[in-house]
Nucleic acid binder design. Structure first.
Length: 474
DNA sequence: ATGTAC
């Protein structure tokens, strides 16, 4: 499909409705941030998503948009549940509930400096990472797995892995109630039993960071962030379990497309009506996998606390935990009428404004922290949701790739990259040289520009910029 | 993203 972009306003482009598109496309970006890497078909994907049954308002792309499976990463689409709206696993991604957790440590970067290497050594020795099995919490079998799938971070805390306060600062208080563990297959369970409490690989990481700049003092203070304060950012998902759930349900939906009379421009958009047995089965399994992802981040938090206690003697509090790969049933006004929507966020972060009923009282005045991981050589951001976000209260989720993994491997060597980062003062504890090279900072868009465009487009407001002190790489 | 193909 030929894509024509119309600049509607600064930071906002429109892809005109044409062909089978039911709604236009909306791309939040600057010209410089538009995906133009050779072969990147992200904008075609934005147009493809606009053909899905029941889609409302627009098919959205965030400033970090890039090519993904079916849907672009940095993409968002909402479908009307009562008007034949579909749910598509490709709109969530293979890594269900991939997300970010930010912790604030009771120490400043200057005070931590003499202990940083030791802290990084402890983290490097204790954080399970890389592909394959190995996690901090070995589950006994399917019955205990079902507890994790139903209870998420709440079950982990119940079992002693954390404190009740943690749950207040988790999206959905740490678990989606609509999880249906019975829809998670035997193979997915098998893969997940030995991976709770592990980072995984790819772009996943655990970073010790410092608050480099505060953009909004009031919001930063409400989130427990201060200039120079030390934070820990955890970026990971639901490992092999989520991947298997996606694989299993894509297959089912692919086979049922004809029966539902759905025709698609791309088979990777396989979907089913939200209210169909196939749609409900996927959403139940997806919510269960999402809860697994939350339990995963909860377990990693426990390891971080142990490391900070032993290496620095300080405590660590949860700032927030939010997923950026998820489909949720939410009520939003469309053309002035409240509608139940299935909101697909794939590489897009929910961003609730101050006063939103889904926020805990502790965050109601400030709004929801929006956690944006950047790259290990640059920066990450904390933003806050604001009113008037017409992308169904959603923002970007990271910097967004511009080089493929293959391109990165051709241009960068892991050993060299580690030396460069260490010389810039970032301690690196890699999992593999190859994995490190694939994640080289130049493989990503400029995260400062992405954050600025996100604010410029009115999607969220900047609160703080975080810089890496040490990275444990998945 | 992923026991980086069944």
């Amino acid at each position: 499909m030929d894509i024509t972009l119309v600049e509607e306003s600064p930071f906002r482009f429109r892809i005109e409705r044409r062909g089978a598109m039911r709604v236009p496309g909306t791309v939040f970006a600057t010209r410089a941030l538009l995906p133009e890497a050779a072969g990147d078909q992200a904008l075609e994907q934005v147009a493809n998503v606009a053909t899905l049954p029941g889609v409302v308002r627009a098919s959205f792309a965030m400033p970090d948009v890039h090519w993904g499976y079916g849907f672009p990463i940095g993409g968002l689409a909402a479908t009307d549940v009562e008007a034949g709206g579909v749910v598509s696993p490709g709109g969530v991604g293979f890594d269900i509930s991939c997300g970010v957790r930010l912790l604030a440590a009771g120490i400043d970067r200057d005070a931590l400096e003499p202990r940083l290497r030791e802290l990084m050594d402890v983290l490097g020795d204790t954080i399970p990472r890389g592909t394959g099995p190995g996690g901090l919490w070995r589950l006994s079998g399917r019955p205990q797995m079902e507890e994790v799938l139903a209870g998420g971070a709440g079950y982990a805390v119940e079992q002693g892995h954390g404190v009740p306060r943690d749950l207040t600062f988790c999206e959905d208080y740490g678990a989606l109630e609509e999880a249906d563990p019975s829809q998670v297959g035997a193979r997915a369970v098998e893969r997940g039993l030995r991976q709770v409490g592990s980072l995984g690989s790819g772009n996943h990481f655990l970073e010790v960071q410092a608050v480099d700049r505060v953009h909004d003092e009031k919001a930063a203070a409400a989130f427990g962030l201060r200039p120079g304060g030390v934070c820990v950012m955890i970026h990971c998902g639901s490992r092999g379990l989520g991947h298997q759930v996606c694989t299993d349900h894509v297959r089912v939906m692919d086979r049922s497309l004809r029966r539902f009379g759905i025709s698609l421009p791309d088979r990777q958009l396989a979907c089913a009506p939200v209210v169909s047995p196939e749609g409900r089965a996927y959403l139940g399994a997806m919510a269960a996998a999402a809860n697994y992802g939350r339990a995963n981040r909860q377990l990693l938090t426990e390891a971080v606390r142990r490391a900070f206690t032993s290496a620095a003697g300080v405590e660590v509090d949860l700032v927030y935990d939010v997923s950026h790969n998820m489909a949720k049933t939410e009520t939003h006004e469309v053309d002035g009428v409240p509608r139940r929507l299935c909101v697909h966020r794939k590489g897009a972060t929910r961003a609730l404004p101050p006063g939103h009923p889904d926020l805990p009282g502790e965050l109601s005045g400030a709004g929801q922290p929006v956690l944006i991981p950047g790259t290990m050589g640059t920066a990450s951001y904390v933003l806050v949701g604001e009113p008037g976000n017409d992308a169904f209260l959603s923002t970007c989720h990271g910097a967004g790739r511009v080089w493929s993994r293959h391109q990165a491997l051709r241009r960068v060597r892991g050993e060299e990259l580690r030396g460069r980062l260490e010389s810039e003062g970032v301690a690196v504890r890699p999992s593999s040289w190859r994995g490190l090279a694939e994640e080289t900072p130049e493989a990503y868009k400029d995260v400062d520009a992405v954050a600025a465009a996100t604010e410029g487009a009115g999607l969220a407001r900047l609160v703080a910029r975080l810089v890496p002190l040490g990275v444990v790489k998945g």
